[in-house]
């Protein structure tokens, strides 16, 4: 657990936010300002080793232990390598915390009347739990299982055992008791990918790391004048986020 480091990092977070807010005014009038990375800037060098890593942000839905689990999970699903910083360095744990605290995480637009029956897979999700409640149940059940299997909470495991543990979940080989391992893993994988690839305004995909990695230009996404010219030819543009135009 990162308990003793939190006050210090919390302070850094505050500084970081103030810096961002000050720069936002500049970015709005000039998307090409220093806050917007230049097109050829390597995503791999920035972020992975960057000292300005802002994780963790203040938490909205998860407690510290749950957050540690999510950080460990997203860093296993999206490890730091030549292509991108790790999941949590890209803000994916922050993204997940905020999504679970959002209306969606609270079950908005979800039919929640009983009776609640298991059904067959073709009938889809049939639990009474909201996404937030389901994730917390899945985290607790996975930690119970890793304690039994490896003697430690998931986030305390070395990288090789984290990979083994997530693989066991993915293949349905881990017995999570009342929680379906496959179902939890699939939900975890889906939300991690959403956080990695969504617009950075939701807290993930920090510095548009995944967009740079893919060569996805983000906004403004107007290609009427270039679509003929770049048919079967590489097109490059510095990616821009919704925040760059807001």
């Amino acid at each position: 657990m990162a308990g003793d480091t939190i006050p210090r990092r919390g302070f850094l977070v505050g500084v970081g936010l103030a810096g961002t807010a000050a720069a936002a005014g500049v970015a709005a009038s000039s998307p090409a300002s220093a806050e917007v990375p230049a097109p050829n800037q390597s995503s791999a060098t920035e972020g992975a080793a960057a000292p300005g890593n802002r994780e963790p942000e203040p938490l909205l839905a998860l407690n510290e232990a749950e957050h540690a689990f999510i950080v460990a999970a997203v860093d296993t699903i999206i490890p730091a390598d030549d292509l991108s910083p790790s999941g949590s360095e890209c803000g994916v744990a922050t993204f997940i915390d905020r999504q679970l605290a959002s209306a969606w995480g609270g079950g908005a637009k979800m039919y929640r009347s009983g009776p609640f029956l298991r059904g067959k897979p073709e009938q889809g999700y049939q639990l009474a739990l909201t996404p937030r409640e389901f994730f917390l149940a899945g985290i607790a059940a996975t930690n119970d299982w890793t304690r039994k299997t490896y003697g430690k909470d998931f986030d305390r495991l070395p990288a090789s055992e984290r990979i083994a543990a997530l693989t066991a979940l993915e293949e349905g080989k881990a017995d999570l008791g009342h929680v379906s391992a496959r179902q939890f893993f699939n939900a975890l994988l889906t939300i991690t990918m959403e956080g990695f690839f969504a617009d950075p305004i939701y807290g993930g995909n920090r510095n548009m790391a995944s967009w740079k990695m893919l060569g996805f230009p983000g906004l403004p996404a107007t290609y009427a004048n270039v679509i003929d010219q770049y048919r079967d030819k590489p097109y490059t543009a510095a990616p821009q986020s919704i925040a760059d135009f807001s």
């Binding site: 908005a108 979800m110 959403e194 919704i242 807001s246």
Partner: peptide
């Protein structure tokens, strides 16, 4: 623009779709 270019909001969280908390259908094969 720019908010319409938001894949999470529209494609993943289904901003423009029916509110299933009020109304849905049941299904069986």
């Amino acid at each position: 623009l720019p908010n319409l270019r938001d894949e999470l909001r529209y494609a993943a969280r289904l901003e423009l779709m029916q509110d299933n908390s009020l109304d849905t259908i049941t299904f069986r094969n």
